[in-house]
Write a protein that binds this DNA or RNA. Structure first.
Lengths: 234, 234
DNA sequence: CGACCGATTGAAGGTCGTCAAACTACGTGG
DNA sequence: CCACGTAGTTTGACGACCTTCAATCGGTCG
C-alpha cells in the first residue's frame, strides 16, 4: 500500500471570468458584475491518477467542477461489495450533494489525471441568493446527475457482459470519437458493469483480438466504433 | 390491449395549508403567508393501477407530489429492452425534470392506486423566486432522486437474483415493516432487477415455499424480514 | 364454457463467477 | 546488470446461476 508523496498540486487561484470552459460550468450564465459577489478564493487543483478527492461521510465545505480528467464515484454495499456508480468528466460537479446539506455519498477517486476548480459552498449559496442565473444552471446540473445515474443503470447494468463493455467504451469515447479513449483497469471495469474482474478481462481481450479495440498505451485504446455499436445493440 | 374507461379521477382542489403529509412534501417549510403566492390551482388526482402519468418526451407543465400509492419510472434501451429505474412513493416528486426545463425522461405508470397533487411549474418557479424556504426543499428532493438512483444500482442490480429480490422486497416494506407490502408482478420484478421474468418468478415462488414471503392477496405479501435480510446480505 | 393473461415449472444450453495458475510490466535492491 | 517481488492481466477448468423456449396451471372476464 504505497501512498503517493503528493497526490495533488495547487495550480493557483482560478479566474472564473477567463475560464476556458465557461460555457460548460456552473458559472456559465453569470454576468460580468456577478463575479464581484465571489468573496472567497476558488482554487484550481490538479490530481494524479489514484488520488482520492473525498470519501463517503465527509463534509468538505466545497464542491468541485471537473475541468479535465476523469473521476470515479464509488459506493459500497453493506456486505463490502464495491460498485462504481458514475464517472465525472469535464463540466461535471464533484460532491454536489454538499450543496443540499448532505455528507458525501461516494468515494471519489481520480482515474485520469484531473484538474478541478474548488468552489466554497458559501460562494454558491451567495450567488444563488443574489442571481437567478446560477440557479437554473444548478438545477440543470442536478438533473444531469439523475440522468447519468439512470443511463448508467439502463445502459451499463443491463444485458450480457459483451454489450455492457461495448456500451461503456463507446460512452468513454463519445467526446472525441476519433481520439484514443481511456481504457479502465479490469477491476474498475467490473465494478462499473456489475461483472467480475475476469469476465471484464476476457471481454476486453476478445475485443482486442477482434480488432475492435486497439490499445495505444496500457491505459488507452483506439476504438472501432461501428463494430462496438453492433455488439452494444444486442 | 384494454384501456380503462377512466384511469384518473379529480378529487378536488388541494388545500396545501391543511395537507396531511405537509412535513414530507415540497411545501414543508413554507410559512402561512407564502401560500398566498400560489395563484394557480393545485389539483388532487387519483389514479388506478396501470394508469400512465406521462411518457418520455412529454412536457407536462406541472410536477406531481405523490400523496399515496406507488409509481414506477420506466426507461427503454435503444434495442427495446425495458428497465424500471426507480419507484416513487409518498412524498416523492413525479416529473421533477420539468423543473429543470427538460422533457420527461421516463414513462411513469401507477403500480398501486395513487393520489397525486399536481403543481403547475409556474407555482414552483414563483415560490422559488419569492422564498428561499422552498428552494432548500427542492434541492433536497433532487438529491434524493440521485441517492435513490444510486441505491437502486448498488442494491438492486448487483449480486445474485435471490439477493436482489430480497433487497427489493425489504425496501418495499421498510415503511410499515409489519404491514403486508406490495408484491410486484413478475415481469415488473424482472425489469426492476435486471433479470428475466422467469427468474423473478422462480425466486418469489421459492421464497413463498420457504415461508419468507406469505401472500395475502395476489398483489401483496407479508414478509419474514429477518430471513430475507439474511438472503439479501450474501 | 372458452379465451386470455399472468404465474409457475421443466429442460437444455449459454453465460458468468470462482478458483487457480501462468504471464507481464515495472520498480526495487542486490 | 540482473534477480526478485508486486500488482495487474490473461487464461483455463469447472460448476453455479441464469436465460430461453415451451408447456402447464390457475384465475378472470366476456
Amino acid at each position: 500500500m504505497r501512498q503517493p508523496q503528493i497526490e495533488q498540486a495547487w495550480r493557483g487561484r482560478a479566474e472564473c471570468r477567463e475560464c476556458g470552459i465557461r460555457d460548460l460550468v456552473l458559472f456559465a450564465d453569470l454576468r460580468h458584475s456577478d463575479f464581484s459577489l465571489i468573496h472567497q478564493p476558488i482554487d484550481d487543483l490538479c490530481y494524479e491518477s489514484g488520488a482520492t478527492l473525498y470519501r463517503a461521510g465527509e463534509r468538505p465545505g466545497h464542491v468541485s467542477t471537473v475541468r479535465s480528467g476523469l473521476v470515479k464515484l464509488i459506493q459500497y454495499l453493506p456486505n463490502g461489495d464495491r460498485r462504481i456508480v458514475r464517472l465525472l468528466r469535464r463540466g461535471d460537479l464533484a460532491g454536489i450533494e454538499v450543496l443540499a446539506g448532505q455528507p458525501c455519498q461516494h468515494e471519489a477517486v481520480v482515474l485520469e489525471p484531473a484538474c478541478l476548480c474548488r468552489i466554497p459552498v458559501g460562494v454558491v449559496e451567495r450567488l444563488e441568493r443574489e442571481t437567478p442565473r446560477l440557479h437554473r444552471r444548478l438545477l440543470a446540473r442536478w438533473q444531469r446527475a439523475v440522468s447519468d445515474a439512470d443511463a448508467w443503470l439502463t445502459a451499463l447494468s443491463t444485458g450480457p457482459a459483451r454489450a455492457r463493455v461495448a456500451r461503456l467504451l463507446l460512452r468513454l469515447s463519445e467526446q472525441d470519437p476519433d481520439a484514443a479513449c481511456f481504457l479502465p483497469g479490469r477491476e474498475d471495469l467490473g465494478a462499473m458493469l456489475g461483472v467480475s474482474t475476469e469476465t471484464a478481462s476476457r471481454v476486453v481481450a476478445e475485443f482486442v483480438r477482434s480488432g475492435f479495440v486497439r490499445p495505444t498505451d496500457p491505459r488507452h485504446a483506439q476504438l472501432l466504433r461501428p463494430a462496438l455499436e453492433r455488439v452494444a445493440g444486442s
